[in-house]
């Protein structure tokens, strides 16, 4: 069974999914960050494939990507770094990146690389559902990887149902109309949207992302979904602690979880 499904079966709330950009702050931090996130209590990890033109991302993630590319990160390097990761940890791992990267690397070769490394799911924000269905569904589904789709406050009910039918693993509920890292806090309008989606009885669990940055926003998000995703806030923290990545990673996760085990 896919590790993402195992996780959602075993744990029903407070799922903490952390994003980081591979190759940032230093080229070889990838494995250290993954292992430390796992030990510190994260439940799932999104590994960002750094991209020159990340349309859906804000300045924090974009700059971390530019730095990672300048550090020499490529997809082949990333696969190389991850080749023994499954000897170290069984935490669910996802790749997050843009369709052009997959196309240029070669979709088949990319999917083989993911399977060989033990990746469990993909988040490709610029892969629309209809193109997924017509061009990539057979390949991706055949590889055993889950494809995660985003929904926003603007996504219609019909479309959410269509996405729910095609998605595997979980649905990524974007908290507001925004790019990553843009807004923080959760408004009444947003909670109404979360409640509206919750009332739909979808087959996939949901995680809330965008604007989740600390213990308090994580707790709030967890009231409305199975858990939450944190990206920009972690990248900012790593950026401020480039020479103590392992400690910084541990203290960040501990800060988010603070009292949430209680």
């Amino acid at each position: 069974m896919n590790r993402i499904d195992q996780l959602f079966q075993a744990k029903k709330d407070h799922i903490l999914n952390i994003y980081f950009t591979a190759g940032f702050p230093n080229l070889d931090d990838t494995v250290t960050i993954i292992k430390t996130l796992d030990h510190a209590g994260a439940d799932m990890i999104e590994i960002g494939m750094p991209y020159s033109d990340p349309m859906a991302d804000g300045p924090t993630i974009q700059e971390s990507g530019s730095k990672a590319i300048a550090n020499g990160m490529t997809l082949s390097t990333l696969f190389q770094q991850l080749k023994d990761i499954r000897k170290e940890t069984q935490i669910p791992l996802l790749f997050m990146g843009y369709l052009n990267q997959m196309m240029q690397y070669g979709v088949d070769k990319f999917l083989q690389g993911c399977t060989a490394a033990g990746i469990d799911g993909l988040i490709i924000p610029d892969l629309p559902v209809d193109i997924y269905e017509s061009e990539l569904k057979d390949k991706i589904a055949g590889s055993g990887l889950h494809i995660i789709f985003l929904i926003t406050p603007q996504t219609s009910e019909d479309r959410i149902r269509k996405i729910d039918a095609l998605a595997g693993g979980f649905i990524y509920m974007v908290s507001s109309a925004s790019i990553t890292g843009a807004k923080s806090g959760i408004s009444d309008e947003q909670t109404k949207y979360f409640e509206r989606v919750n009332a739909m009885n979808l087959k996939n669990p949901r995680l809330i992302g965008f604007g989740i940055s600390n213990h308090q926003t994580f707790e709030t998000a967890c009231q409305y979904a199975d858990g939450a995703i944190i990206g920009s806030a972690f990248i900012r923290h790593l950026g401020q602690n480039q020479n103590r990545v392992q400690e910084a990673t541990r203290e960040f996760v501990e800060g988010i979880l603070e009292k949430s085990e209680a």
């Binding site: 349309m55 859906a56 369709l99 924000p125 610029d126 892969l127 629309p128 193109i131 789709f149 985003l150 929904i151 926003t152 603007q154 996504t155 479309r159 974007v174 109309a177 925004s178 790019i179």
Partner: peptide, 11 residues
């Protein structure tokens, strides 16, 4: 061609 856009731009 096509429209390879994130869901945030779909509407």
């Amino acid at each position: 061609g096509g429209a390879f856009i994130p869901e945030m731009l779909h509407a």
